[in-house]
Structure formats: structure tokens, C-alpha cells
Design a protein around this nucleic acid. Structure first.
Lengths: 209, 209, 209, 209
DNA sequence: AATGAATGAGAGTTCATTCAT
DNA sequence: TATGAATGAACTCTCATTCAT
């Protein structure tokens, strides 16, 4: 999709508002006001509030899917390296697009818009396929142990990151990091998460129970 | 709080609808209709839609807090046993109260009602305190390793469980379990989760990186 | 009518609330709460909110009518004395029952409840008759001039008093009497009004234009 | 303020309904229905029912204040002439805007909307100032006597007119004028009032008690 | 292509009253 | 006689969307 500046302005504002007030808690009037456009523009450009949400989802999920593709085709890395690279990539994506991942999380719960459900399903399916393939490769190369539950592994990855994203404030407060600039804090938390999850993955992929 | 049958009927219906449509996506009319009560009863009993949500939260968080308390006072278990027991307890709670945990997840994102924010904060604080204490005990008894990041450990626990809860359908489909009765499927997934998370925790609490 | 303590409590509270919030701006719940009785009592005792208003009106207008009757039958006073006595009596009544007169003023404007309209009409008719008779007597005794517009005279009396009642705060502020105790301030204003209106009446009843 | 036709239609309807049913006794639905506009237009144009009332008040009080200003700057009249002109002007205004003055009277009693209270206060203050100035001028020119209570004079003016306005029906009935066309009746009553109040004012401003 | 005006539908809440006890 | 529980109706206001321009 090729969006005009105004359309991108709307999408960006919608993402921000949806992520902090929820879809039903955000009115198109709010979006239009904050985006500095006429209310009618939203229906005019996107058709409806729901379609706006779908456009927003399409835009982000395209981004995300492209990143995954490129990652796995790097032939020079070992399976574990690929997996670790995927972990970092995922951490990076979630932390960079926090707003979108918050929206996605809520949409997974609410589950009302079929188009969104479909998009999420496709993302998830593609994720599962990629990781399954990666793990099978690793198993063939004896890098990974035989029995790996791909879904639980994925849920551990995604759950741990999103849960951390949801509780960033607590982390900041608990570790007395309130005065650290946000950029720096984000870098710190990304590194912590990276080490933590890689450690978990090594256990899941190598150690026998 | 002592609620009448009708009040419980309202709370139960609200929990179901909030969990599947979100707070803003559920109208008090919907709740009243499905609960089979007059629409005015909701304001009459709870004061407002927001207060209804708060009542719902109070009720569940009381439940949950009580469960945690009782668990940690069992003196006959080792620290690891306690931790594992806590894991199972958490899995059980989330799977049993899926609706409530979905609501809580969305509320953590949306973050609008101060009373709810406070309740969630208190639950989280209590969780952190309990687990911190448990881990310190384990470290004193040399059962656990020195360096443990309590928050990341908690996020792993909670994130993994909730993420699994959110994707139960995918799990069912992926593992061809569509024909298994729901009860049985839930038991299976709880066991899988239990083993998985206990394995992770053993790694986190014992193995050096 | 013989009212029980509770009924009087309700009537008194209703008078206070109606006078400061208007009839439609006061809910029976407010009245019941402030009167310390069950909500259902109001319908139970008085039939409805409207009937309560009517009861309130009946009660006060009986009071007021009785006062007028007794006044005019005093045979020892001159016509002017009687008229001046009536002025003072009216000032006293309005200042003592400010709440009721405020309600009555609004009801005269709003004019919706037929029973109230009738009561007000009767009060007014009785007033007009009494004053007409008084003036005719005075004219026969050559105390008063020939041409007197009874209604304008009455409107001057009532209008001046009620307008003053409505603007007591301004009077207090304008004359720097904010620190005078209310009782004392009321006495002062009653005396001012008395002198003022008697002066006007003397002009209206004696001086030729 | 520049209002569109529809807005003026709403304001006019609201004025009529507020004056005959009171603010709380009038629903926005009633106004919208009778004004022939969609119910949502009222919030759309004025923000809320309260704001509509405020707009109505602002509009009328601007009118009224302008009239007063222009009056007092006529240098060719004597003080008494000015005062009499002011009396006529006031009678004219009240009789022409009966609905608004009824609303204002009730609002003075009910006293709930701060914006309205402020507007009324300002009108009153301006009135007092103008009349005070006028009287002082007259006193300097020896046209008026020394001791004049400005507030009681104003209350007599306003009270007498408004009380007459409130009881027009009685006046009509009492003087057997039911068959006189309304326009003609209004002219008659205005003349009566004019003579009556001017007579009172001459007494108040000239005769010693 | 873009928009201010306008709208029907539905939101949460409060209302006066009634009913079973 | 007295009342807590309950209710249908009506309230004000906001919603996403449409339409004429």
C-alpha cells in the first residue's frame, strides 16, 4: 500500500490511541482531532473505523513478515545463531513497535474483527512454520535435542517479551531506574531480555529434562 | 463482599462479556440482557459500569491473593517444591479463570481506570514480594543460584501461561486435538505447561549461564 | 390535615429542596435521603411527587389565608392602619417562608400542575377580594383617593418584596452587611421594606397624580 | 455571536420551552422536536443542554446591556426624563422578552449554573451602576431628593413589572379584557405600568417621607 | 478530492413509581 | 404499616457514518 502523508498521519495517530485506549475506547473524532484532519477523512480514506484498524494491521504485519523472511535465508549462521538472531529480532520488533503489539494483544483477546483474526492467524502460522523449519534443521544437524515443543517455545518467547513490555514501569521502579533516560532504559531491558531468553532457549533446545 | 444471586449472575455475565468483547465493547444493556436482569439493576447494585468492573476485579483478586498466601506457609516443602507448587497454582488459576485474566491483560494495556490500576499493582506487588522471599530462602539454603532476576522469572511464568491461554486454539489445531473434549484438553495443556515451566525454572534457578 | 412527624419531615425537606433546586431539579430520592426516610414513603404517604408538592402548597396556603382573615376583622384600626398592617404582615410572611414563596414564584412561571394553579389562583383571588374591600372601605371613609388600581397596588407590594427576597445577597453585599448575623440582617431588611412600601402605598392611596 | 438560522431556531424554541416548563422540565428531545431539528444537533451546536441555556442567556443579556448603554448617553434629557425613559425601556424589554425574564426569574431562585449566576450578577451590577449614576446626577442637579435607596427603587421597578407579567391573565380577567387582542392588551398594560411606576418614582425621588 | 453539517442509533445513567413482603 | 428490591421509561450525550457541496 502507498499511503499519503495524511493517511500515514492518521494511521500513526490511530495506532497511538488504539494502543492506549483500546479500539472501542477510541473515537474516530479523537483520531481525527489529534491527527489534525477532518473527521470525514477517516471514512473517506479507509472506509470505516474497522477498515482503518485493518489497514493499520496490514501495514505493520507486512513490516514484520518481511523481517522474518530475510532473517532465515542467511546461510552462514548455525541453527542456534539463527535462533538467537530471531530472538533478538523479536525483542527489537516488540520494543520498537510496542503500541502495535499492545493492540495485537488486545485484539487476540477480543477477537471480533474477522479480517484482523485472519491477519493474526497468518502471522502466527508463518512464525510457526519458520521456527519449525529452523528447529528441524537444527535437529538434523544435531545442534538441538530431539523433543522440542515448538508452540511452547514460541509462547515462551513471545509471552516473556510482551509480559515484560506490559510491566516496564514496574521493572523501572523495582530496579530504581526511574531517572534513566527512556532510550537508555530500553537498551538495558532489551539486553537483559536477550540474555534471559537465549539462556532459556539454550536449555529448551539442548538440555534434557 | 457478600453478593446476592442476582449480583453474582451480573458479575459472571459481565466477566464473560468483558473478556470476549472488552470493557468498552460491552454495553450494560448487553450484560443486563444476557444476565436476565433489568438494565437499571447494574447501576442500582454496583453504581456504574466502571464500578461493576471494579467489583469484578476485587472479587477475583481477593480469591487469588488468598491462594498465594496459603501456599507459602507450608513449611514441609523445599524451596524448589514451593516454587513448583506456585507454578502449578498459577497455571491452575489462569486456566480456571481465563476470562478474568484476559480482562486483566487488556486492562494492563488500556490502563484507564485508576481503581483497577491500583488493584493490579497490588496483586503484582504481592506476587513479587512472595516470590522474592521464596527465592531468597532458596538461596540461603543453597538450593538456588545466587543471581536470579525475579521480575524476568515472573514475566516468564506469567507471559508463557497467558500467551498459551491466548493461543489455545492454535495449540489445539496444531496438535490435532480438535476432537478432544475441552476438559481433557485443558488437563493436557496444564500438564504440558507445568512440565515446561518447571523445566525453565530449574534452569533459571540452578544452572549457571 | 394532620401530618405525622415523618410526613412533616418530608414536607419540610421537600420545601427546602424544591426551593433551591426547583421541582424538576429535585428527585424523590434526594428528598427521602435528606429527610431520612425510605424512598417508597413519599409515594406511600402522598401518592406521588406531584401530590407531595400539592400537599406542601395546601399546608402553606392554609397558613397564609388564616393570617389574612384575622387581620381584616380588627375593627379598631383605620383603613390606612389596616393597609399598613397588611403590608407588614405580607413582608413578615414572605421573609419567614422564603422557601415557599420561591417555589410559588417558579410555579407561577411554570404553570404545569393544575392543582397548584388552582391553589395559587384561589390565594390570589382571596387577596384581591380582601384588598378591594379594604380599599373601598377607605374610599367610603374618604381616607383613600378615588382611583386606585388594586392589581397594580398588589403587584407593587408583592413584586417589591419578592424581588427583594430574590436579591438579598446583593443587598447585603451592596450595603456591606456581610458580617451582620442573618437574623439581624433580616430584621433590618424587613424594616426598610416596611417603610419603603408604606411610603409607596401612602402615595398610591392619597396623592393625586 | 453569529448564529445560523437553525441555531436561532433552537435558541428560540428553547427559550419558549424553558420559560413554560422550566429548565429541568424541558428535555432536549422536546426542544429538538419542536425546533424541527435532530436531537444530536443541540449537543453538536451548543455542547450541552446547560451550554444551550448559557448561549440563550448571553444572547439576551447582550441585547439588554446594549439598550441600557445607549439610553444613558442622551445628554438632552433631564435626570427625571432619563429615569422615566429608563422605566419605559425596562417595561418594554420585559414585556417584549417575557419568556426570557421568566427564565431569568426562575434561575435566580434555583441558582445552580455558575455561568448563569455570573451573567445575572453582571447584568444586575450594570443596572445598579447605571441607576446609581443617574440618581447621583439628579441629586447634584437638585432634581432628586437626598436620600434614595437605589436597590429598593430597582426592586420596586423590576418587581412590579415582573409581578405584573406573571399575573397578566388575572389582570385580563379582572378587568374583563379577555376579548381584547393580545397586542392591544399589551399596549394597554404597558401604558398602565408606565404611568404607575413613574408615579411611584416621582414620589420616591422627590417627596420627603 | 475533500469537508462541514447533519443524523439515527445507541451509549450509560437516573427517574418516579410499584410490588412482594 | 412500612420498606428494600426492582423496573420501564426517559434522560443527556456521543457515536460512526453519510451527504451535499
Amino acid at each position: 500500500m502507498n499511503y499519503s502523508d495524511k493517511q500515514i498521519q492518521i494511521l500513526t495517530t490511530a495506532e497511538r490511541l488504539f494502543s492506549s485506549n483500546g479500539f472501542d475506547g477510541t473515537s474516530v473524532r479523537d483520531i481525527a482531532d489529534e491527527a489534525g484532519v477532518n473527521i470525514a477523512m477517516i471514512s473517506y480514506y479507509f472506509g470505516s473505523k474497522e477498515k482503518l484498524m485493518e489497514a493499520l494491521f496490514s501495514r505493520r504485519s507486512e513490516d514484520i513478515n518481511m523481517q522474518i523472511e530475510s532473517l532465515l535465508h542467511n546461510e552462514q549462521m548455525s541453527s542456534l545463531q539463527k535462533m538467537e538472531s530471531l530472538v533478538d529480532s523479536y525483542i527489537e520488533r516488540v520494543m520498537q513497535k510496542q503500541q502495535f503489539f499492545k493492540i495485537m494483544m488486545c485484539e487476540q483477546v477480543i477477537n471480533k474483527n474477522p479480517a484482523i483474526i485472519k491477519l493474526i492467524g497468518e502471522m502466527k502460522k508463518r512464525n510457526i512454520e519458520s521456527i519449525t523449519k529452523l528447529i528441524k534443521d537444527g535437529q538434523q544437524k544435531k545442534e538441538f535435542k530431539k523433543k522440542v515443543d515448538v508452540l511452547l517455545l514460541m509462547n515462551t518467547l513471545i509471552g516473556c517479551i510482551t509480559q515484560t513490555m506490559l510491566t516496564l514501569e514496574y521493572y523501572q521502579e523495582f530496579n530504581d531506574l526511574q531517572n534513566v533516560p527512556q532510550d537508555q532504559f530500553f537498551e538495558q531491558i532489551k539486553q537483559k531480555l536477550s540474555i534471559h531468553i537465549k539462556f532459556l532457549f539454550k536449555a529448551l533446545l539442548n538440555y534434557e529434562a
